[in-house]
Design a protein around this nucleic acid. Structure first.
Lengths: 386, 386
DNA sequence: TGACTATTGTTCAGGGGATGAACGAACTCG
DNA sequence: CGAGTTCGTTCATCCCCTGAACAATAGTCA
C-alpha cells in the first residue's frame, strides 16, 4: 500500500466520517462511545463510521484501556501514525524551513536551508529539493502547506501570492508552481493565518473565536471564528500592522512604509525594536541581551513595543471579543521583558472590560513553528468538509 | 386563527422549511424551481416543503407570472403579509421608538414617545404601554426585538444589559422584564449589532462578511460573518469606539472617558463634533448648519470626524477584510460634508490596498432605523436554525 | 389549427444514512 | 459464580432527499 493515494482516500470520505476523524485528530484517542457523544451521533452510527475508517487504514484499534473501571473496557480508536504525512514549508527572507508531520500533528522530521537570494525561481527550486530530501523514499505527502508572509489572494481562479514584502515576491503563483512537482494538493497560507489555525487545533484547549497575533519582521494577526479560519472576502483579513495607535509612552516611533510615526509597525516589529534599541539591523539578539542587562535605551525600546502590542491586542479584543488571544512570533520578547507595560497598554486600549478578563496565551516560539502550522493547515484543508 | 401562536408555528418548522422561508423573506417572491436552485434542493423536496409552509399559513401562492416566456408559467410563492408581526423597539436617552414590521421587513406601523427620565422602571413601563398601543387588537407579536446602546451579555443563563452609558442602565434584565408582558420571545441587541444584521438582510445586495459602523452619541460596529451576526464570545464584539488612532489632521481631540485625546470617540461622535464646532451640547443640528454655511471651526470639526471615521473604517477593513462596509448613524453627516477627507483617512489607514477597493454603503438614516433593525433581528432569531 | 418544444409542479419508487432497542461481549465486585 | 455495568454490534425502522416519469400550461412554427 503506497502512501501517495492517501489524500484521495481522505477526500473520498463522507461528512460524518470526516467529523469523526477530525475529532480523533484534535482530541486524541478515544473510545467509540465518547466519540459518539462528542460528535453528537448515535453509537450505532459510530460503529458504521469507525468501520469505514478502519477499512481505509486511517484509524487503528488500540488495546483496551481499563483504568480499573467497571464494565467492558473501551477499545480506543487512534489515527494511524503513518496513514498520512503532511509537508509544511515556511519561507523567510533568509531560510526555508520544512517539517513533516503525521495525522496527529506530531513532528516526524524537519530541516532548514538558507536561501542565497530572494529570487523566486531559485527559492522554489531549493525548497522543492529540500522537500524531496525530507520525504526520502515517500514519493508524495498527503498534502502540502506553505506559509509565507504576504497576501494570498485568488485571481482568475488561482491562488496568487502578493505583497510578500520581506521576500520581494509579488504576484507569483506559488501554489501552482509547487503543485507541478507533486500529486498532493498544495495550499499557500499567510503565515500568521496558518499560526492561528494551528493554535486553534493543537494549542491546548480549543478557543473560538481565537485571535493570534504574530510579532516578527512585520506584525499580523489571524482570526478563527466558528472553528474556522477567517481569511476575509479577499484573503486579506488580519492586517493589523498599520493600525494607528498614537504616541506610545510619550514617544513617536520609527517611520513605517506609509510614513506613519505611530502605527503598530513603528514600535512593535523586530526592525523597529532594533532601531529603538540602537543596534544594527539584524542584531535583534543583541538588543534582547542589552535589555536583559538593563541598558536603558534597549529597555525603553522593548517597553514601547510591549505597550504597542498591548494596544494591538486590546483593539483585536474590542473588535472581535475572542475567547482567547495568543501572542507569538520571533519578536515577542517584549512581553517577557516588560510584562507590566504590556498589561498597561492592554488596559489602556480595552473598552468596557478589564485586562484580567482577557485570556492571553503564549505558545512557545520556535522557528519551525510556522512550518508546522503550515502542515497543520494542509491537514485542516484536507479534512475540512467541502 | 389567532396570530399569537405564529412564533410557535415557525419554531416548529424543520431546518429545510426554515431555509426556504428565509430565502423567500430575503429575496422576495419566487417560483419553486428558482427556490430549489437557490437553496440547493431538488424540485421534489421543494414541493413537499412548500406544502408545509402553505398549510402553516406562512406563505401564499401568487398568481402565475408569465412574462411572455415559453413553457408553463411559474406560480410564485410569497410570504403571507399577516403571517407574522414583529415588534422592534429602540431606546435612546430621550425617546423610545417602536415599529411593527411583517415577514418581509416592511413597515406596518410606528410610533415614538419621549422619556421623561432615564429611570429604568419608568422607561420600561412607557415602552410596554407604547407597544400595547401600537399592537392594537393584536394580542401578541410573533417576536420582540429591542435595540439599545450597551453590552448585551449572558449572566447566569439570562440576557443582561450592561454599560448602557447614555441611559445609565447597568446590569438590568431588560429581556426578562419585557418578556413578563408577552408570550412572544423577546431578545435584546446592541443597537449597532442590530443595524448590521438588518443591513445584511434588507440592505440591498447581500454582503458577507459585512461591517456596519454606527456613528452617533457613541461609535460602534457590528460584524456579519458567514451570514451570521458575530457578537463574540461574551457579546462584546464590535467595540471600536476607544481605538487609539493618533492625532488627526495634526490636532488632538476631546478627552474621552478613559482620558484619551486620540481615540475615535475623541473626534467622531456627536458630542465630540459639537464641542469641536463650538456649539452647545445637544446643538448638533446647529453644528451641521454652520458647517454647511462654511464656518471654518465647524468645518474643521467635521473634517476631523470624517478623517477619524475613515481610519476606523480602514482598521475594520484591515482586520476583517469585509465584502462591504456600511456607515450610518445620526452623526454620519461628516461623510457628506467632507467626503474627500474621509477618503483621505481611509487611504491613510489601509494596509496593502487602495481606498477604491473598499465598497462603502450608505444606508439612509432615519431615527426609526434602529427600531426596524431590532424587529428584523427578532425575525432573524425566530427564523434562524437552532 | 395541430404538432412540437419548453418549463413548471407533482407523484412515486427507491435509497442513503441515522436511530432506538435489543443483544452479545467483556470486565468488576461481592 | 452471579449480579451489575459498560461497550460495541446488529437489525428493523424511519426520515428525508432524490431521480425519473408524468401531467399541466404556455409559446412556436408549419
Amino acid at each position: 500500500m503506497t502512501i501517495s493515494a492517501e489524500h484521495t482516500r481522505i477526500a473520498a470520505l463522507g461528512a460524518a466520517e470526516r467529523r469523526v476523524l477530525l475529532e480523533l485528530v484534535r482530541r486524541g484517542p478515544q473510545s467509540r462511545v465518547r466519540l459518539a457523544e462528542r460528535v453528537g451521533m448515535s453509537r450505532a452510527s459510530l460503529t458504521r463510521i469507525s468501520r469505514v475508517l478502519l477499512d481505509a487504514g486511517l484509524v487503528l484499534e488500540g488495546e483496551p484501556e481499563s483504568p480499573g473501571a467497571r464494565g467492558r473496557p473501551a477499545e480506543v480508536l487512534r489515527p494511524r501514525p503513518g496513514a498520512a504525512v503532511f509537508l509544511g514549508v515556511k519561507y523567510t527572507a533568509e531560510h526555508v524551513y520544512l517539517v513533516l508531520t503525521d495525522l496527529c500533528g506530531s513532528l516526524i522530521a524537519e530541516t532548514s536551508t538558507p536561501l542565497p537570494s530572494r529570487d523566486f525561481d531559485e527559492a522554489l527550486e531549493i525548497g522543492i529539493a529540500a522537500g524531496d530530501g525530507l520525504l526520502g523514499d515517500l514519493d508524495n505527502p498527503s498534502a502540502v502547506g506553505i506559509a509565507v508572509a504576504g497576501d494570498v489572494v485568488v485571481e482568475g481562479g488561482e491562488s496568487i501570492l502578493r505583497r510578500s514584502g520581506f521576500l520581494g515576491w509579488d504576484g507569483v503563483p506559488l501554489a501552482r508552481r509547487v503543485a507541478e512537482h507533486t500529486s498532493a494538493p498544495v495550499t499557500v497560507f499567510n503565515d500568521v493565518n496558518a499560526l492561528a489555525g494551528a493554535q486553534h487545533w493543537f494549542g491546548g484547549p480549543r478557543h473560538s473565536p481565537l485571535v493570534v497575533l504574530g510579532v516578527g519582521a512585520g506584525i499580523g494577526s489571524g482570526i478563527v471564528l466558528d472553528d474556522e479560519l477567517h481569511v476575509g472576502a479577499h484573503g486579506l483579513a488580519g492586517r493589523v500592522g498599520h493600525s494607528r495607535i498614537g504616541a506610545v509612552l510619550g514617544a513617536q516611533g520609527r517611520p513605517c512604509a506609509n510614513g506613519h510615526l505611530d502605527c503598530v509597525h513603528s514600535f512593535a516589529t523586530v526592525p523597529a525594536i532594533e532601531e529603538g534599541a540602537g543596534v544594527a539591523p539584524g542584531e535583534y539578539a543583541e538588543a534582547v541581551r542589552r535589555a536583559v542587562l538593563g541598558e536603558p535605551g534597549a529597555r525603553a525600546a522593548f517597553e514601547r513595543a510591549a505597550f504597542a502590542v498591548g494596544i494591538a491586542v486590546a483593539d483585536a479584543v474590542n473588535a472581535v471579543d475572542p475567547d482567547a488571544v495568543a501572542v507569538t512570533g520571533e519578536g515577542v520578547h517584549c512581553l517577557d521583558l516588560a510584562p507590566e507595560v504590556f498589561r498597561q497598554g492592554l488596559a489602556d486600549g480595552l473598552e468596557g472590560r478589564t485586562a484580567d478578563s482577557v485570556r492571553i496565551e503564549r505558545p512557545l516560539f520556535h522557528f519551525d513553528l510556522y512550518a508546522r502550522a503550515a502542515a497543520v493547515m494542509a491537514m485542516r484543508e484536507l479534512l475540512a468538509e467541502h
